[in-house]
Design a protein around this nucleic acid. Structure first.
Lengths: 134, 134
DNA sequence: CGGTATCCTAGCTGATACTG
DNA sequence: CAGTATCAGCTAGGATACCG
């Protein structure tokens, strides 16, 4: 199973980092592509279904979405409600834990936008150099 | 140049996401491996030299360290002080912006550890399933 | 509908070797 | 010392096809 393997890696990577900072463990999950978007979209709707989510996150594949959702659930950020029926129906929603995270993320967002327009300084040199491949 | 290409990607990736959330742009940089560690180590020392940093982050290669440092500089999180001399000497340090980020990161860390030991609930099922490959 | 299994590619990463 | 160029391995991510 693919997920199993991933966790193993994560374990390997964090093994030498987790001692340094708790944040890194979370980062292993949140830092991954789509993770944040998923959380964000989940926060707008109360509950959302798989394909609905997939539609919103245009570009993501079922594989990855499923994977991220699984990881997020493992971290206790997302809860899954399964309706055993045909056709299947599964609803995802944020947990209390994730709600708390939202606040922090919002702070991060504020921080990000606060500095976004102040790049006219010396740091701009590097930024520009990077954007337009020298 | 390798760095140039990376920025292009970042631009491409965020193009459809940045409108959704400012955080994502930062995440493109912070989410990358080593980025957080670098920031963390920079915060302990006032200023640090390239190889010194490389030594602390045992496992990282010059290539990646240089790359990350460049990206972080582009985001205005790290400042570089070059001493034109032989042998070369370059010191890296955190910018004011990064100092602010630290606070947020610390909150994130608190959040992370606060929940770390409460995984004995239903969320544990998924967590366990993930950790030990079913 | 909601996933999982499989294959395949792109890009991140790290080791090595080489400049200023 | 502080990188950069180059090469090679590995893995995440996407597309497809197929079950419950």
């Amino acid at each position: 199973m693919r997920l199993g393997l991933k966790e193993d890696e994560a374990g390997k990577k964090t093994s030498m980092q987790s001692t340094t900072c708790e944040v890194l463990t979370i980062w292993e999950v949140l830092g991954k592509r789509w993770a944040l978007l998923i959380l964000k979209n989940l926060s707008t709707k109360e509950a959302i279904r798989f394909n609905e989510l997939k539609k919103v996150l245009s570009g993501i594949s079922s594989t990855v979405l499923s994977e991220r959702l699984f990881e997020l659930e493992g971290e206790g950020l997302v809860s899954k409600k399964i309706y055993t029926q045909i056709p299947p129906k599964v609803e995802y929603s944020l947990t209390t834990r994730a709600k708390e995270l939202e606040v922090i993320l919002k702070d991060l967002g504020k921080w990000a936008s606060r500095w976004k327009y102040l790049e006219g300084t010396k740091t701009m040199a590097a930024a520009t150099a990077g954007k337009k491949n020298i």
